[in-house]
């Protein structure tokens, strides 16, 4: 099983290489990366020419790409195009923050969605079922940035009424967050709204999957067998239904890591969080191919990790896979 998962993991490496190559190709072919530099009045043609030569921007792009690849093992991801600062420390910082946001949102969304999906399947056609269905449609149809803005407005309105700020509406930490436990409590407090905004779409989507697979499991023969044994409904639900219904839901959840990253790009922008998403928007704005590629590699790495996790979980939940 682990072997199988690892093999699949290895296949993703060439994909990763290909995607950075393509990115590099069209980023560097689709415009002048030094355009921004040219706009600045106090920079001379000579200075620009010096940057060009130093970064080898006149070489054919495969050469440039290889040079970039070569430096990864030693120097991390090299430096920004224009400012001679290393990329890696920045990435490292924003990576941790985004992981906190994304992992927390995913776990919370999963727990809520599984519960909602299972309960609405068990109470199919009830008021509860119709309400969750309607809400999930709403969740699908709502841009997450707009939901985030609504949350912000809501918190401010509450503040105006009660004089109490229930949640911070920006930043990852207070100016003086303290250390240890206090720091993490402060962080959690700051992340409540971003997590809620990020989780809403996942909840809507996973709960639909859970409901559907739960319904399918509920009408399966082995549930009939379990009933015919005289098991209690609670036992049937927890022992026989939930675990089987979780299998497809887990897969869907693990494969939507990319969606979460997409969400983080938006949410971090709205809440001004110092994470990978906002970083990405920044470097895109600057049209600097190097940090964009570094970002892609990091995200690709996490995608692979998420895939591996999905495979392992899948194998754990489904013995039919485990021994293949």
């Amino acid at each position: 099983m682990l072997n199988y998962a690892l093999r699949r993991l290895l296949i993703t490496i060439p994909i990763l290489i290909l995607s950075t190559f393509l990115t590099f190709g069209f980023v560097s072919s689709s415009g002048d990366p030094l355009a921004d530099l040219r706009q600045q009045p106090n920079i001379t043609q000579e200075q620009i020419q010096r940057v060009r030569e130093m970064r080898g921007l006149d070489d054919p792009f495969p050469v440039q790409y290889l040079r970039w690849v070569e430096q990864i093992p030693q120097g991390g991801f090299g430096e920004y195009l224009i400012s001679p600062r290393p990329i890696w420390p920045d990435l490292q910082r924003v990576m941790g923050n985004t992981l906190q946001l994304v992992v927390a949102a995913e776990l919370i969304a999963f727990a809520i969605a599984v519960t909602l999906g299972a309960v609405s399947a068990k109470k199919q056609y009830s008021v509860f079922d119709y309400s969750t269905t309607t809400l999930s449609f709403l969740g699908f149809s709502m841009p997450s940035f707009w939901f985030a803005l609504l949350l912000q407005v809501g918190v401010v309105i509450i503040y105006r009424w009660t004089g109490y700020r229930i949640f911070p509406i920006a930043n990852l930490s207070s100016p003086n967050p303290g250390t240890g436990m206090a720091f993490w409590l402060d962080r959690a407090h700051h992340l409540v709204l971003p997590i809620a905004s990020l989780a809403i779409f996942s909840i809507a989507s996973y709960s639909r999957y859970m409901r559907a697979s739960m319904l399918e499991v509920m009408s399966s023969d082995y549930i009939r067998t379990a009933r015919a044994k005289g098991l209690s409904e609670r036992k049937i639900t927890t022992r026989h239904m939930m675990r089987n219904a979780l299998i497809p839901t887990v897969t869907v959840a693990a494969l939507s890591f990319g969606t979460l990253i997409s969400g983080a790009i938006v949410i971090e922008t709205v809440f001004g969080l110092d994470g990978m998403g906002r970083y990405f928007i920044n470097v895109i704005g600057r049209r600097d191919p190097y940090p964009i590629m570094a970002w892609l590699v990091i995200v690709g790495f996490f995608l692979m990790l998420a895939n591996l996790l999905a495979d392992l979980l899948y194998g754990y939940l489904d013995p039919r896979i485990r021994y293949e």
Partner: peptide, 9 residues
């Protein structure tokens, strides 16, 4: 599986 929005951006 790729983050759609990132590629789009």
């Amino acid at each position: 599986i790729v983050p759609l929005l990132a590629v789009l951006l």
